[in-house]
Design a protein around this nucleic acid. Structure first.
Length: 282
DNA sequence: AGTGTCGCCTGAATGC
DNA sequence: TGCATTCAGGCGACAC
């Protein structure tokens, strides 16, 4: 469930703890997540120094001074715990990976459903690695625009909702923010992707940018709150306009709910879509 | 190449 | 109470 904003929030939470630290120990508590841990992960990471943290799509990329990158994907249920100053911590069920740093901080990855991925790659492989080579533009970057989107949607017969979830179209948008962005744009999620006008796509691009930016801001405050309670970084709860609000009023509701039935839930390609029919006719 | 479906995985919620 | 079923979803694999 972590989408771009949650991943970005986790990254920002990790950054101050990881930057310029040396990795002193790596432990794996099982052999795989969604994919196996690299066999040589210990050798690759131990003794390396962390230079910087970046994000590409929903991947956290930790750049090391040995020209390698540690890539972490939270999948659907991944979260990260930061234990500082050698505080006591008993491993929990589903803690699968642990990294100890020279500042005596422990970074612990927990993932009940194990849809996440942890792997390493070299800087040279970044461009051509199969996880990254087909990815579309970053929605918050300069390379994302209505024209680009129009181009990528050309001839697509799938719904605009499904297209937004397609990583080759645009990255970082998952089920929740796809629903929210379409609501904000007043676009019907079932509209054919290739038939959305350039004008509407202008609106959609702005909506995607806004919904993601707002969520990142919300994540920032969540981060503060979380740090006071414990060191868990991961998915955070947020107020949505339509997502998970079946039969309830939408965020900007001025409809007669008795008549309209409120937010509608449909299933597209096996995924729930929530939308407000009167407001999303486009 | 584009599209549709399935499987991975656990825990919460629901059904009988 | 207890057991079985359904659902959640990011993303790769696969079939057509």
């Amino acid at each position: 469930m972590p989408e771009l904003p949650e991943v970005e929030t986790v990254l920002r939470g990790l950054e101050p703890h990881l930057q310029n630290q040396k990795i002193t120990a790596i432990k794996t508590y099982r052999k795989d997540l969604r994919i196996p841990f690299p066999k040589d992960i210990k050798q690759t990471l131990e003794k390396a120094k962390i230079i910087s943290l970046k994000r590409r799509a929903k991947y956290i990329l930790i750049n090391l001074d040995n020209d390698m990158i540690l890539s972490i994907h939270l999948g659907m249920s991944g979260s990260i715990q930061i234990i500082t100053n050698g505080s006591n911590y008993d491993l929990l069920k589903h803690d699968h990976f642990e990294m100890t740093l020279s500042n005596n901080t422990r970074i612990i990855y927990n993932d009940p459903r194990r849809f996440g991925m942890i792997f390493t790659l070299s800087q040279d492989d970044l461009v051509n690695h199969k996880a990254f080579v087909h990815l579309g533009p970053e929605p918050l970057g300069n390379a994302f625009s209505a024209e680009i989107l129009k181009n990528r949607l050309k001839g697509k017969t799938v719904s605009i909702k499904q297209a937004l979830l397609d990583q080759t179209v645009v990255v970082g948008v998952g089920n929740i923010y796809a629903c929210e962005a379409l609501y904000m744009t007043g676009l019907n999620p079932e509209k054919q992707a290739g038939k959305v006008s350039l004008n509407k796509l202008e609106d959609l691009v702005q909506s995607i940018r806004r919904v993601l930016s707002t969520a990142i801001e919300a994540g920032g405050s969540t981060l503060k709150d979380h740090r006071q309670v414990d060191g868990t970084l991961g998915y955070f709860q947020h107020q949505f306009n339509v997502y998970d609000r079946e039969a309830l009023p939408c965020g900007q509701c001025d409809c007669n709910i008795g008549k309209t039935g409120g937010v509608k839930r449909i299933v597209q390609s096996g995924r729930s879509t929530f939308f407000c029919p009167p407001k999303q006719k486009g």
